[in-house]
Structures are given as C-alpha cells and as structure tokens.
Nucleic acid binder design. Structure first.
Lengths: 120, 120
DNA sequence: TAATCTTATTCGATTATTCGAATATGATAA
DNA sequence: TTATCATATTCGAATAATCGAATAAGATTA
C-alpha cells in the first residue's frame, strides 16, 4: 500500500483550485508573485502559501531577480497529469489571457511599459 | 477559478492510497467487494466507504450477481491520470498478483475452485 | 418467514486542510 | 543605516477528511 503514498501525495497537492490555477499560469514559463496576484486576484499571502506547498512538493522552484521572485515549474510532467484530468472531467481548457493589464506590477517584465509611458 | 473546481474534485478523490489501490485492482475488469477485501487486506466496511466515494465521483459502477456485488470502472480515462502521476513521482508500477488465494471468497469467480476441491 | 449471506450506511472522535489576519524576512535604494 | 519594497511565515478558527465500531439493508436460500 505504501506504493500508493507518493502518488496520493501528488494528488493531494493538485486537489486545490488555486494551485491548479497557478500551475496553469506557469505553463508558458516563469512568472513573479506579483503577476499571480494581479492575474488570479488572490491576496499575496494566500498565493505565497500555495506556492510553498507547490515548492515543498518539488513541483516549482523560485529565483530572485532584484525585488521580485520568479517561480517556474521544474516537473513539466505534471501538466500531463492535469491535462489527463481535464479529459476525465470533460472540461474545456480556458486559458487566462496573459498580460491582462500591462502595468499590473513593477517586475522587470512590466517596468519597460511603465517607462515608455513616463517618457512619452 | 470555478473552472478548476471539477478538476480539483477529481484529484480529491484520487488523493487517497486505498482508492488508488482499488482502482488499480479494477484495471483488468470488474471485481467483487470480497475480492478487494481479500487482496487489499482492508475491512469490508472500509472498502465500502471508499467505493462509495468512487461511485459518487462517477468513476465506478456496481452490478449485483447473486450474493456478490461487482464493481467496474466506467471512466477508464482515469488510468491516464494515474499513470501520468506515476511518471511524476517516478514510481514503478507494482501490480498486485490477481487470484492471490483461489478461495479467497465465495463469488462465482472462486466458487468453481471450491467445488472442485469438494468433488475430488 | 426466518436465518444467513454480502455489502452499505451511520456515527463520532481524531486528524488534516483551508484561509484570513497579522507579522516577519530579507533584498534594495536612498 | 534606515525606509521601502516584494515575498514568506506564523497563528488560529472554521471546515473537511479519515477510519474504527456498530449496525442497517437487502438479496438469497432453507
């Protein structure tokens, strides 16, 4: 039965809507926490809590760049699990539009946009 | 965010070792409850509880045959989810040997064996 | 109908998860 | 070195999951 423990643990990590949303947001590459905050509409501390769980499960890793911390998925195989689950539930994949608002946060990905606005 | 609720619900069902073991046992077709009892070593009521959760999730269905009730998986796509999870956890698939003991229970699958013993 | 069989359900104590509020941490810029 | 920024952590109350024990349900045979 112990053979099923590690699988069960993975499913336990994936059983939460917010964590699934975060993983979906990271499909195309790393994002900083402030982006997740802006795009998903959760409080910062709440996102950080979910990221901690994903981190402890070994699914994501973080990297600091100046003031911001960027998260990326280090086990891309997890998307096969998620996509297979979508087939079971018969759910359409609704992709959130990235860059909802261009100045959602002040990370290096958004800063250039702000600077353009200031200069013009 | 509601888009992730049904996926999360599926993972919630799969996050339990006993339920994963039951699903694995049903890979090759239907089995009666007494078989699961004998092969998995759980109490009957416990197995029945887990089967109820699998049933309510729409993953399995039951069928009565005389005294026994046979369960079968009605969403075989769920095995793609489980197998994808195994790749993430890096776990070997340890298949339980079916028919551990031939007279584990008295369901129609085992009865012939018992009758042979009596006749000989 | 009564006895017997398999399976299902209910109850409840224990343990785990969720998530808001408050606060800590630690890098950075002045 | 102090203020400020993004992010992390801790705490705790509400809610949900787990699983043993007891018992119910419902088909079947005598």
């Amino acid at each position: 039965m112990e053979a099923y423990q590690s699988q069960a643990k993975l499913f336990k990590v994936l059983m939460h809507p917010a964590r699934l949303a975060i993983l979906d947001l990271l499909r195309e590459g790393e994002e900083c926490v402030c982006h997740m905050e802006a795009y998903l509409g959760f409080r910062q501390a709440y996102i950080s809590q979910q990221l901690m769980i994903l981190r402890e499960a070994g699914l994501v890793e973080d990297r600091r760049d100046g003031w911001n911390i960027f998260y990326r998925v280090i086990k891309p195989e997890v998307y096969q699990v998620i996509d297979a689950a979508k087939k079971v539930t018969g759910e359409e994949h609704i992709r959130l539009p990235l860059r909802l608002t261009e100045n959602a946060c002040t990370c290096p990905k958004c800063i250039p946009v702000l600077e353009n606005k200031i200069q013009s």
